[in-house]
């Protein structure tokens, strides 16, 4: 059995158990700070983890982190950005002004102090700071790519001393890139076929199970 402490409660679980499952056995109600339960995609299970003999305390997603003997774990609530970085869908479409909008909606981005806190905090190992700096310098597509696998756990929001909300900036870059530039030719053609009436569905046509 592996013994650890989670939010002040002792847990004793078999090896290979994840922290989230261990928390459940320790009597911690799993009603918050948990969602997908192991896939590591919802970002709800933020935690600080100190391993035995390590002075360092690291961030982790508790549903994907296996328990270790002597581990200390504290769950972290979701920290919302200090102020919402508000924009609407109409802000997304014009590629010529995308950079202006990044600067207007995320004015903090140019103030990155290069502390690397976001990089260290990211449980997915993304190059968050680089993404922020790319967006702040106008490379929207470059910034978007950095955040491909971001799970919006908001740990970088909590970590950033300049209140940049790096992941939300990254998502803004992603949304700008997609809404502003993605125009798939095959989709456009199919939409035209449908609106022009050239392609329809005969709902009574199919009667057999096998094609």
């Amino acid at each position: 059995m592996v013994n650890l402490t989670i939010d002040g409660r002792p847990a004793s679980v078999p090896e290979g158990t994840t922290i989230v499952l261990a928390a459940a056995t320790a009597g911690i109600a799993l009603t918050t700070n948990v969602g997908c339960m192991g896939q590591g995609v919802c970002g709800a299970c933020r935690a600080l983890v100190r391993r035995t003999g390590e002075p360092e305390v690291r961030t982790a997603l508790a549903c994907e982190t296996p328990v270790e003997d002597g581990m200390q774990v504290s769950f972290l609530d979701r920290v919302a950005p200090r102020r919402p970085h508000a924009y609407s869908e109409t802000d997304l479409v014009d590629g010529w002004t995308a950079y202006e909008r990044v600067l207007a909606v995320f004015p903090e981005a140019v103030r990155c102090r290069h502390c690397s806190g976001c990089d260290r905090a990211c449980p997915k190992g993304l190059e968050v700071q680089k993404g922020v700096n790319l967006a702040a310098s106008g490379d929207i597509a470059g910034a978007a790519a950095v955040f491909d696998l971001c799970v919006m756990c908001n740990l970088c929001v909590a970590a950033c001393p300049e209140h940049i909300a790096p992941n939300h900036l990254g998502l803004f870059a992603r949304r700008l890139a997609a809404a502003g530039t993605q125009r798939p030719a095959d989709l456009i053609r199919r939409l035209h076929e449908i609106t022009s009436g050239a392609m329809t569905i005969d709902a009574d046509a199919c009667t057999d199970k096998q094609p």
Binding site: E56, V57, T59, V79, C115, R120, A121, A158, A159, P161
Partner: peptide, 30 residues
């Protein structure tokens, strides 16, 4: 907190968050 050390920044926010919850009467023993 300067931002270099995530446990300092996020940990102190979490402490503040929990304390605020206690102060407003919404916290539990946990």
């Amino acid at each position: 907190s300067c931002g270099q050390c995530p446990p300092c920044k996020t940990g102190s926010y979490q402490l503040a968050h929990l304390l605020q919850r206690i102060d407003t009467g919404l916290a539990t023993r946990a």
